[in-house]
Nucleic acid binder design. Structure first.
Length: 582
DNA sequence: GCCG
DNA sequence: CAGTACG
DNA sequence: CGGCCGATACTG
């Protein structure tokens, strides 16, 4: 008890995120002080850094945003830290200390800032400094809050009563969901407990997939949400009833199945059509191949894209983007580290400056949610005062073409007339590559002139060496031998998916909500809107038929929906149902 | 499948 | 229109 | 029981 008595703590950049406000409550419950005013700054204090700003080398990242997010005057606070060098650790250490019952700072505990550079960042130390990256990241996710006996759970329950956002683990698993992400500030998870839920997670992932294939999208969704709920649940599940009580989206049906799995170790019939799922999965992992095509092909006994090519050559002429999905099949399943995202954004912004210096490019998607590995890059374009989407569309087109000229853009997945003009030859090259006859007079329908989105294949120059996290490096889905001949993938110089979106300046807030995601969060908040007689889209929040309530200010949209604002990094923690009280 |  | 894609 | 995201956006 009173572990933190007499100790002062400073949260940086602030303690507004749900995780950090939770931790600050833990500090106060243990007689510690949380500094809220520059007057209280103290050289003896322990500085707690939001983990979203610490990369896996334990360095500060995204310093610009970091400083911008300060609750107190950033100048004063930052110069104090540079000058006094208080101990700095990642915020999650709090839960670790409470678990082990003491505060452990590494011997060289105030080595924090590489003073010669305040721009590229400084080292943040924690107990695991010096361990290998793998070990460090394993331990990161294993940091635990309280076991459910003490202050921790009280506060957490009180919280969750008022908020649909649960202070729980964010731990997206990559087995069944290729779009999963590991989030920087994943914390408060007991790896040991959670790993025992793995069987359940896998089972419901499979069931979700099975029903998706069957065409029962809603039953599939039921399983998917339950799976997400279990992934985020920070304790070991001991009974179906416990899960039904505590976890959103676990109802009678899933509770029953949980109990069966706990009792017998597996679910009858679970492995039945596993082979079919694998086959369909192989096809649908290709861009532009959905569940209908995959099912159709599978039904006809086709095993590979080469088989499809023999049977339905027209498909690859008509749905030409599949050719690129096929060619970059393996590359596009590989995730990239944040530094590669930064580099791509850098290239895009540099070119954009020449195209239209007044236009802004802003990263969205899993990157802004703090994911350490991103499956693709989502870039939102907007321009102060510009509500003309035709103009924005033209800017994006010009930008994409300029990047194509420079050799960054490898392929386009949509065509404007101009893009078809320059890119058509590459399409024909792919068509020839799979030994198809090029239609002599291709009578294309009139391509749309001002597209609002561009999906691109993008390659950095080969000097850039991509890094991969250990976790994703293994068990990749690879192209079948028969299909390899079309591959353009290269793990040492991979092609990436980059998506361009644009929005009217007046719709910036609504667009940010849309493109920040994640998908489940969007669906959840849109349902909220409908329940309150409103409608939320990427264009804005509306009441009734067509009354615009708000589209520019995302915080105001939350407010109008009666929801507390939640930052991007916490939108992974979304959960549909309040945690039930016991 | 779950939820209201 | 259906199919696929985006968060 | 009926609804389950989007006045999505793009393609053929």
């Amino acid at each position: 008890m009173a572990l933190f008595q007499g100790k002062k703590f400073l949260f940086l950049p602030n303690c507004r995120s749900s995780t950090l406000s939770f931790l600050s409550q833990l500090i106060r419950s243990n007689d510690g002080t949380v500094i809220c005013d520059v007057e209280e700054l103290d050289k003896q204090m322990i500085t707690l850094i939001n983990k979203s700003f610490i990369d896996k080398d334990q360095k500060l990242t995204n310093k610009e945003l970091f400083l911008k997010e300060f609750e107190m005057d950033p100048d004063i606070v930052w110069s104090f830290i540079l000058h006094e060098r208080p101990a700095c650790v990642e915020a999650n250490c709090i839960s670790e200390w409470l678990k082990i019952g003491k505060i452990t700072l590494p011997p060289e505990f105030n080595v924090l800032i590489d003073e010669e550079d305040t721009t590229t960042g400084f080292h943040v130390i924690n107990e695991h400094a010096g361990q290998s990256n793998k070990e460090a990241s394993d331990r990161e996710s294993s940091m635990e809050s309280q076991s459910d006996t003490d202050i921790g759970s009280e506060t957490s329950h009180k919280d969750s009563h008022e908020s649909p956002f649960v202070q729980a683990a964010s731990r997206e698993e990559s087995l069944d969901n290729p779009i999963s992400e590991t989030v920087a500030n994943a914390d408060l998870v007991d790896e040991e407990n959670v790993s025992k839920n793995e069987t359940l997670i896998k089972a419901f992932g499979r069931l979700a997939r099975r029903y998706e294939i069957k065409g029962d999208q809603y039953r599939s969704k039921g399983y998917k949400l339950a799976k997400i709920g279990i992934e985020r649940y920070p304790h070991e599940i001991l009974s179906g009833e416990q899960a039904r009580r505590d976890i959103a989206s676990v109802g009678p049906g899933i509770a029953k199945k949980i109990q069966i799995i706990l009792d017998t170790g597996s679910l009858p019939g679970l492995d039945e059509s596993f082979d079919l799922e694998k086959k369909l999965n192989y096809f649908t992992q290709c861009h532009d191949v959905g569940i209908y095509s995959a099912k159709r092909w599978n039904l006809l006994g086709l095993q590979s894209f080469a088989d499809v090519l023999k049977k339905f050559p027209e498909v690859f002429i008509r749905d030409w983007p599949i050719l690129f999905g096929w060619s970059y099949y393996e590359d596009w399943l590989m995730k990239m580290c944040r530094d590669e995202c930064d580099e791509i954004l850098n290239v895009v912004r540099t070119t954009l400056k020449r195209v239209d210096p007044a236009c802004s490019a802003e990263l969205q998607g899993s990157y802004v949610r703090g994911a350490q590995e991103c499956g693709d890059l989502d870039i939102l374009f907007h321009k102060k005062g510009c509500d003309n989407t035709t103009e924005l569309g033209r800017i994006m087109e010009k930008l994409a073409l300029a990047l194509y000229d420079q050799g960054y853009v490898e392929c386009f997945l949509q065509l404007s007339p101009k893009i078809r003009q320059v890119f058509g030859s590459r399409i024909r090259e792919r068509v020839r590559k799979c030994k198809l006859k090029i239609p002599s007079q291709e009578e294309y329908p009139p391509a749309v002139a001002d597209l609002k989105k561009y999906f691109l294949g993008f390659k950095l120059k080969s000097e850039f060496k991509p890094r991969y996290l250990e976790t994703s490096a293994d068990k990749l889905i690879k192209l079948e031998t028969d299909d390899r001949f079309m591959s353009l993938s290269s793990s040492s110089h991979p092609c990436r998916r980059v998506d361009f979106f644009c929005c009217k300046y007046s719709e910036l807030g609504a667009a940010r909500i849309q493109w920040t995601g994640p998908k489940e969060f969007n669906r959840w908040i849109r349902i909220k809107a409908v329940q309150k007689g409103m409608k939320l889209t990427q264009h804005g929040l509306y009441r009734g038929e067509n009354i615009l309530l708000e589209s520019f200010d995302d915080k105001r949209i939350f407010e109008l929906l009666g929801e507390e604002y939640v930052g991007p990094e916490d939108r992974n923690r979304m959960i549909k149902k309040r945690q039930k009280q016991s």
